[in-house]
């Protein structure tokens, strides 16, 4: 396909090449090989640690700038877990916080030019979403036993409709991890690919100013999307946790 584009217009579009997983050393990718995935995930972890641990070493009552950012993130997610999932969900707070910080830093690190975006890979987001799905299902059954199945049996609906609704609810329950993961990866990948396509047009001198403007605008929207997708992933995790803890609504 790329060769066709090259021969047709003289432009070179490789919008997906930025997502290629490459080993840092050597050529072969085993399950343990350090790759660019490792590098950028490690950087994300380092950023999280730098913000949340080294930023707060002062334990100051009057916080420094970094510490107040860390406290802001803490308060933001804590309030979200408490408000959306309920008071008894607070014990899942470190877990939700881990997801949020990992996603938000991966997204922002991915916005650095020439970087690699780990959250644009379905392998990553599907694991994240499956972790949430499994947690919610297991916690739901442990907490409520068989009553957890009442989530699919809508007692407020007429009796005749309930089996139909049960099937719909069941399907939507199992579609959750799919939409949860594809939403994140798709959003991130789409934005990066679009920027890349605009960058491809910049090879034509006539359109390059427009192209650069478009890249700048897309970059701005991507910064917004990077945060909003992390927020949405986190708040949906909280919503699902609420279902697990209080299935009766």
């Amino acid at each position: 396909m790329a060769t066709e584009a090259e021969s047709g217009t003289g432009l070179v579009f490789h919008p997906m090449d930025q997502f290629i997983v490459k080993p840092l050393f050597g050529d072969v990718i085993h399950w343990y090989t350090p790759t660019n995935v490792t590098l950028w995930m490690g950087l994300a972890a380092l950023c999280v640690i730098a913000l949340m641990v080294f930023g707060t070493t002062g334990r100051a009552t009057i916080p420094s700038r970094i510490q107040s950012v860390a406290e802001l993130a803490y308060g933001f997610i804590y309030k979200m877990v408490e408000d959306v999932a309920g008071k008894d969900a607070v014990k899942f707070f470190p877990y939700v916080m881990t997801l949020f910080l990992f996603i938000v830093f991966s997204n922002f690190l991915g916005l650095i030019p020439m970087s690699f975006t780990t959250t644009s890979h379905f392998a990553v987001t599907i694991v994240l979403a499956l972790l949430v799905f499994l947690t919610v299902t297991i916690v739901g059954f442990i907490k409520n036993g068989v009553h957890f199945l009442e989530l699919f049996w809508v007692t407020s609906a007429p009796l005749a409709l309930r089996p139909v609704l049960a099937i719909i609810e069941l399907v939507s329950y199992f579609v959750r991890p799919v939409s949860h993961s594809i939403r994140l990866a798709g959003n991130v990948m789409a934005g990066h690919a679009v920027i890349k396509v605009f960058a491809g047009f910049a090879a034509l001198a006539v359109v390059s100013p427009v192209s650069i403007l478009a890249i700048t605008a897309m970059y701005g929207i991507e910064v917004l999307v990077a945060f909003i997708q992390a927020y949405v992933f986190t708040i949906l995790t909280c919503v699902y946790l609420k279902d697990a803890l209080h299935p009766g609504h």
């Binding site: 396909m1 997906m16 979200m80 408000d83 959306v84 939409s179 594809i182 939403r183 798709g186 959003n187 990948m189 789409a190 690919a193 909003i228 927020y231 949405v232 708040i235 949906l236 919503v239």
Partner: peptide
């Protein structure tokens, strides 16, 4: 929060069609 959840659900379906487009392309 409800607004963002609503937007997320609406957008996810758009992302699905984008994904179909990508799959067809690549």
């Amino acid at each position: 929060a409800t607004l963002f959840i609503g937007i997320a659900f609406a957008e996810a379906l758009g992302i699905f069609s984008f994904l179909v487009a990508l799959l067809l392309m690549f």
